[in-house]
Every structure is written in C-alpha cells, then in structure tokens.
Amino acid sequence: MTTTPAPLASPTRIRTAQLLQQYGVLVALGLLILFGALRYDGFLTPYNISTVLAYNSMFGLIALGMTFVIMTGGIDLSVGSVAALASVVAALLSPYGLWPALFGAVAAATLLGLINGLIIAYLKILPFITTLAMLLAARGLALMFSNNESVSADFDHGFTTFGQGSIGGVPFTAIVLFGAFAVGMLALRYTRFGRHVLAIGGNEEASRLMGLPVERTLVLVYVLSGALAGLAGVILASQFGAGQPTEGLGWELTAIAAVVVGGTLLTGGSGSVGSTLVGVLLLGMIFNILNFENGRGTISLSAYWQSVIRGAFLLVVVLLQNRLTRGSKP
C-alpha cells in the first residue's frame, strides 16, 4: 500500500503567509485606528491617545520582558503579582521621593526575577512551576506588606508626577515605554545576548554544546522580566496614587496575548520586540473602542467581559498563527 505525499505549498502561498506573519498585526492595528477615526469624534484627540498610551504602558513593559522569556521557550506567570508587590513597595517608599521609590521597587522585583532565573537555570525546575510558585509568593508578600489594603502614595515629593506627568503632551510613562522597547529591539538585533536568547529558544541543548552561556542567559532573561514588572508596578502606584496589592490579576495573560499577537512563537526561537509593541497597542485599541461603544450606548459590556474578549481573541490569534506557520513552510 502506497501513500500519496502531501502537496507542496506554492511559492506565492508561502510568501503570503510569511508576509501576514510579519505585518498582519500592523495592518490590523492600522485598520482598527482607521475604523475608530471614522466612527468616533474624539478618537484621535490628544487626550484619548495619551490616555491609551499611559494606561497600556504597564502592560507594554511586562509584555517586553515576556517577549524575551517566551523567545527562550519559557514562561513567566509571576509578573502580575510582582508588579503588585512593586506598587506596594513604591508607595511605601514614596515619602522619600521618586528615585528611592523607583529604585527600591524595581530592585525588589529584580530580586524575585533573579530567584526565578536561578531556580529555572540551575535547579532545572520548569518555568511554569517556578513562576507559578513565585506568583503565589509575591502576592502573599504584597498583601503582608500592605496589611491587605491599598497603600496611599505620597503626593508631596514628586512620586505621582512619574505616572501622571507629561512632556509636550506625551505622558512620561509612554516615553519610558517607547524607550524600553527601543533598547529591547537593539538588544535583540545587535547584541550577543539577543542572539543567545533566540538560539536557546531554538534548541537549548544544541546551544549548550556550542558553548553558549545558557544558564547565565536564562537568569538574565528572568531578571529582565522581573525588573520590567517592577517598573510597571511603580507606574501603577504613581498613576493611581496608591500601591495595589490585589492588582495585577491576569496581567501575565495580557502580556502573553500581546506577545503572541505580535507573532512570537510560544515554542521559542523566534520573535520580534517591535511586533510585541504593536500587539500591546492593538489590544489596548480594541478595549478603547469597546469603551467608545459603551459610551454611545451601542453595547453595554462590563469590565468582566474584557477578560472574556481577551481570552477569545488570544485563542483566535493562536489558531491563525498556527495556520500561518504551516502555510509558510514549503
């Protein structure tokens, strides 16, 4: 009995699938902005744009760290809890000024990221298990330090200016977001660290045999993820004027969604920092449009429906990504 080999995909189909993988999310964002501009009067106003950028800067920073983690083939489920803990630490230190609060919160979050990295790299515990344990530990620390209540930030020493201030109408937090992504893109494209990240995600054992510093790179990746989650926590506390120990629930899923929407493969070894930023903006724009629709009275969706929509959107994107990945292969 003979079997007929599967037909080869045509070069045109392969090229189309590759283009959709690279630029599909950017096209989707452009179409969504065009739709919003045509449908809503205040959609492209400076106020709405700055609000979207300021609010989504927290998710963007976490997604940036998650991009590097996923490119190694790992996952970090602790980022939401780490951000909540950082927000509490920042609020507690805010009476001493912005810089002590900023560095103290980021240092605490970086320490937790370091612990994640050391356990994953040297004790060989799966990232899912390690970061799940850290999720619970960080949440417990946040609740303990805050006595299970919001911690008011100090408004007299410039701390809240970080999350609420702007330069020329551009929020400080948006400047931090774009600056972080610019550094991330340069690091991935032009440094040995970026090449090592992709190599480890492609084949960790082969990377080790080639003499690449696998363990050190993995530790650095989770340190980076923790530090960026800590920075997101500082923004959370400074934007809302309080440390929020119960905030951050589901932030890790939002970050994963943005990374996957941007085209980074969950299996590792391939990804784009710039596309993750577009994915963050796309998700933020979707919920911004839903808010406009709520305001028009066209629909009436509670905040809980955002999680439902986010989950459904992530599932659809993963299915499309899987289809495009198959279509891009000869």
Rank of each mutant, 00 (worst) to 15 (best):
L249M: 13
G268N: 08
A83M: 14
T51R: 14
V318C: 09
L186D: 06
A312Y: 09
P5H: 07
D41K: 14
F162S: 01
R139G: 07
L218T: 00
L114Q: 02
T267N: 11
G202V: 00
A206G: 12
L236R: 06
V308Y: 09
G279M: 05
P330E: 00
G271M: 13
T12H: 15
A237Q: 09
Y96E: 04
L31D: 05
R39N: 13
V25S: 11
L319S: 06
V106G: 04
L44D: 02
G279N: 07
R195G: 04
V259K: 03
R216P: 02
E149P: 00
T173S: 12
V82F: 13
N48M: 14
A227S: 13
R326E: 07
Y96I: 03
Q244F: 09
I115G: 13
A109V: 03
T4W: 09
L282A: 09
Q306N: 15
F178E: 05
G241Q: 10
I289Q: 01
N203C: 08
S328A: 15
G233Q: 04
S150I: 05
G250C: 09
Y23P: 04
A105S: 13
I33M: 15
T276H: 09
S152F: 13
L112A: 10
V52Q: 15
L92W: 00
F178P: 00
Y55D: 03
V25P: 10
G97D: 04
T72W: 01
N288S: 15
Y190W: 14
A86P: 05
L277N: 08
L283M: 14
G194D: 11
T276L: 06
G248W: 00
F128G: 10
A108Q: 02
V308R: 04
L132A: 10
A180G: 12
G271C: 09
P171K: 07
G230N: 00
S225G: 14
L132H: 12
T246R: 15
V89G: 05
G42Q: 08
F155K: 06
L209V: 02
I14K: 13
R189V: 02
V151E: 01
S10I: 06
S238D: 00
A257I: 07
R216K: 13
A153W: 00
S57G: 12
L77Y: 03
P46W: 06
G113H: 01
V259L: 12
G74K: 06
L320K: 08
L177H: 07
N203G: 13
L135G: 10
G74F: 02
N48P: 07
M134V: 13
V273K: 06
G179R: 15
N203H: 09
G279S: 01
S81K: 04
V259N: 07
G230D: 05
I256T: 01
A257V: 05
L61Y: 04
P11L: 14
T160G: 02
L177W: 08
A229R: 05
S94L: 08
T2R: 12
L29Y: 13
G165H: 07
L231N: 08
